[in-house]
Design a protein around this nucleic acid. Structure first.
Lengths: 338, 338
DNA sequence: TCCTGGCACTCTGTGGGTTCGAGTGCCAGC
DNA sequence: GCTGGCACTCGAACCCACAGAGTGCCAGGA
């Protein structure tokens, strides 16, 4: 077990290293933090912390830097979540309030988060399957060509083209539209499949095939992984990565471009509460020197999607966590209002 | 006027520099290209080219590199557009054909273009004002709350929330929806304002105010600059920028994050034909060491939007132009089909 | 048992000096 | 107008010495 003071030393190391980006030595530590002990004592503590794997030396006779394990301990036991100042809160609210539609909300959120944390921001669109149906629209574009439009309570809109096996009349269409909506409006998208299962049966002849086609397309859009969308921003903050950033930045940019990787990344985050993944805790190799701070957000209690930031493991965790949590909260509010 | 051989020397310099990323000297030039003259002669030609401002020396006693003016000449007079190989063409088509909706088309296009050119790709969504109306939908979400959904012939869908001044009945709504659609479907969005101008007059009492509100929101969504959307990708290709890339990359990333900057960038491109802006020809300072290759695309003859790539001035212009043109052509086809 | 001051040691980063080589400009000759 | 030759320039690479920061360890003291 680590003594209280050793934890204090670790905290000091993390704080200094995050601030200066340079390995921190025993002397500098005692000067900047009043630990009440001499550099020699701190050196001994550091030796122990290094043995335990919380800190490391880039090379002999250099200062120490925290390891992933050290940051882990810092986040779990030493750091709180730093709440935002009230001007910051007001700024967030004002900025988000100006959004005209969901794309705008997500876009503004990304920019906001990137700016607040000075890191790369990732915001997932509200998941379809976790939202409820506000409306399903069907439009006849040509005799055998339909457009399906899904609208969720969070303002998300998805559309799909449908080629029908046979021409479909305006009356049948109105009929289908009405039945479909009466069954699903206000229900959760996740429940839609079973709610519409038997719909084709109530149609006659060729129409039945068309209805089946429509429903199968509808169900396709709800398939996990396909239905997820996200937006990222603030990639220029990667240039703040550090001195050795040319090496680091490429794999990170590459990872960020792969929607799949990002979705998995956010998917690994807990549904409720904040998730912090540090360095090698991230499965993706390119992100081994980054940390991910993610949290779910939603209009109600339940999370409809996640958002977060990606930055160097050497980041200001309390501040980042504070910003992420605050933004998630406000986005939730905005969604609830719309 | 520059002699034929001097142009040939310039072409050789551009080609070699693009390939090697290193200043090219007179000896290396004569070795790799059979110009039929000695290094000394080439040196004289180079001196002339330098006097004219087409090439420059990073420092005395180094090789030459092309200036922006040199690239300009190269693009205008020395380089053709390199057509893609037919396997490449087939790959493009296959890849784009799999798209399920417009977002998907744009997303795939960005990825494709980034991959083909190994540069940053920028694709604008089809402009609303240059598209025609496929359908306008109005949904009653609450007694005094509407959702407006616009659908274009290119598959773009925009939605807006509308808070009505007074409750609006389902019958009035159906009426408005029908009248609105009968007037605008099949017409160009740009013409919509005058087509709906007098609509409020045909409604009575409180409904008239609501209809006005709806129309004003509708017109708002058509305002230039607001209605433009775009997607970018391939930013990790920036890491291929060169040795001094840490300095170059930040302003570029920053510029790429500003939608406004990008829209202006694409806006400056000619509507038809390919536009190449080299280095300082770009108004935005951060892009002074990049070139932009852009072209309009559309389902018919007319461009509904633009797409292009951003890369170092030292890029393979013929290849890039070939890829950009080919992709634009295929995207146009895809849009025409949908 | 734990802390402290002292000391020898080990690295890295930096600055100066040298060399090497690619590349140039210029000139005389063909 | 082209060419070979020649002197010159300047950056990159290398080496080396040195200062400085930091460490580990030890013996002495609370």
């Amino acid at each position: 077990m680590l003594s209280e003071r050793r934890l204090e030393v670790l905290r000091a190391i993390v704080q200094d290293y995050v601030g200066t980006e340079e390995p921190v030595g025993s002397k500098a530590l005692t000067e900047r933090h009043n630990l009440g002990v001499s550099p020699a004592t701190v050196r001994n503590d550091m030796a122990v912390l290094e043995d335990e794997g919380f800190i490391a030396q880039p090379h002999t006779s250099a200062g120490r830097i925290p390891t992933d394990k050290g940051y882990r301990l810092f986040v779990d036991r030493l750091a709180g979540v730093k709440p935002l100042s009230s001007p910051e809160r007001r700024a967030i609210q004002n900025f988000l309030d100006g959004a005209v539609d969901l794309d705008d909300v997500v876009g503004r959120t990304v920019r906001l988060l990137a700016q607040l944390t000075r890191q790369v921001a990732v915001v997932q669109y509200p998941s379809l399957t976790r939202s409820t149906v506000r409306h399903v629209e069907l439009l006849l574009l040509a005799p055998a060509r339909l457009m399906l439009v899904l609208i969720t309570d969070t303002g998300r809109v998805e559309q799909r083209m449908i080629d029908c096996p046979a021409p479909f009349g305006e009356t049948s269409l109105a009929d289908l539209r009405a039945r479909l909506n009466s069954r699903v409006v206000g229900r959760r998208f996740a429940d839609v499949p079973q709610l519409v299962q038997d719909l084709p049966e109530s149609f006659e002849g060729e129409d039945r095939g068309t209805v089946s086609t429509v429903l199968s397309i509808l169900l396709e859009t709800l398939v996990e992984e396909t239905e997820e969308r996200l937006m990222i921003g603030g990639t220029s903050n990667l240039t703040r990565f550090g001195h050795d950033f040319p090496v680091m930045i490429r794999p990170v940019l590459e990872a960020l471009e792969e929607q799949v990787v990002l979705l998995k990344l956010l998917g690994e985050a807990k549904d409720s509460g904040m998730t912090v993944r540090i360095g090698h805790e991230n499965a993706h190799e390119g992100l081994n020197s980054t940390s991910v701070v993610a949290v779910g957000y939603g209009s109600g209690d339940e999370a409809v999607a996640k958002l977060g930031v990606v930055g160097p493991t050497r980041m200001d965790y309390p501040g980042t966590m504070g910003a992420v949590r605050a933004v998630a909260r406000y986005v939730g509010q905005i969604l609830a209002e719309s």
